[in-house]
Amino acid sequence: MDNKLPVGLRTVSAGCNIETWQRSNIMRAFKLIIFASLLISPAAAFSQQGIIERVPELQKTARRAIGGAMGCGVGSFVLVEGETETRIGGGLDPIHVFGNRIELDDILTILEARSEKRLGFDPDENKDEVGALLYVTLTVAIASKSPKVISIVKSLLSDEIEVVRAWSAIALIKLAESDPELKEAILPIGFPKSALAGAKSRSYPIPTWVRSID
């Protein structure tokens, strides 16, 4: 029937049909984009945030994790250090808190923030939650066997939170016992008695090479 219309009108009619079709498809695509965005899990969106911005929620998760509320057992995660990826097995706490893929840079950032008094010093913060996150972070530092963590963990040996002092001492000792080169770097470090006392209270043996200081 369109062929019976004048040429000009046939062109306009065809153009309107194409334009309508284009608008329809654009709207359909737009709706699909919106729908797809709604399917993105909160965890995926959460992972896009900077690690320090995530600390308040990570602290709450860590406290629940070490308390057993999120389940106990063993698992494995991938530790990413630059272009190197290493699968590490162990308890579930790091996985509950950080996920199945953990960036060493994030671990260093959290420990540095604590060392520089930028994390966990707000009077309104729950010290148990702060300690829980730092404990889980230190367990990942131990598993990393990276020399990058040594100086930062050393700075936490005198932390005001007992669990942080204790696990910083345990972390350095475990790192030293895991690799001769790491041990060479850790041997000169003096361990405050309060940090060693915390390690002993957790039934962790203190090697004879550890140098205690007041």
Rank of each mutant, 00 (worst) to 15 (best):
N100C: 04
D128E: 15
E125K: 00
K117S: 14
E112C: 13
V136W: 04
S115M: 14
D105N: 14
A132C: 09
D124V: 08
A113N: 13
D106H: 13
E125F: 00
F121V: 15
D122Q: 10
A132L: 04
N126I: 01
F121E: 12
D128Y: 03
F121I: 15
D128S: 07
L134W: 03
I102D: 11
L134R: 00
G131V: 02
D124Q: 11
A143V: 07
I102R: 05
A141G: 12
L133V: 07
N100G: 12
E125R: 00
L134N: 08
K117Q: 14
I107F: 03
A143G: 06
I110P: 14
R118T: 01
T109W: 03
G120F: 01
D106N: 15
L119Y: 02
E129G: 04
T137W: 05
E103T: 10
I142G: 00
G120T: 10
I142P: 03
I110F: 12
K127V: 06
G131Y: 01
L133F: 04
P123S: 10
L104G: 10
V130T: 12
D124F: 06
P123W: 05
V140L: 03
S115V: 10
G99M: 10
L104E: 12
T139G: 03
K117R: 15
L104K: 06
I102Q: 09
N100V: 06
L133R: 01
V140C: 06
T139A: 02
A141C: 10
L119V: 10
E112K: 14
L138E: 06
E129Q: 14
P123T: 11
T109I: 11
A143C: 05
L138Y: 07
G131W: 00
V136T: 07
S115C: 12
N126T: 03
N126G: 02
Y135V: 02
E116S: 14
L104S: 11
D106I: 06
G99I: 05
G120S: 12
E125P: 04
L104A: 04
D128R: 02
L119D: 12
I110N: 12
L138M: 08
E103V: 09
D124I: 06
I110Y: 11
D106M: 03
A132Y: 02
G120K: 02
N100Q: 11
L108N: 14
L138V: 10
E125C: 00
E112I: 09
V136G: 05
G120P: 11
A141Y: 05
D122C: 04
D105S: 15
E125S: 07
A132H: 08
K127Q: 15
E116T: 14
L133Y: 05
L111P: 15
G131K: 00
D105Y: 01
K127S: 10
A143R: 06
D122I: 06
D122H: 06
E112F: 08
D124G: 03
R101M: 08
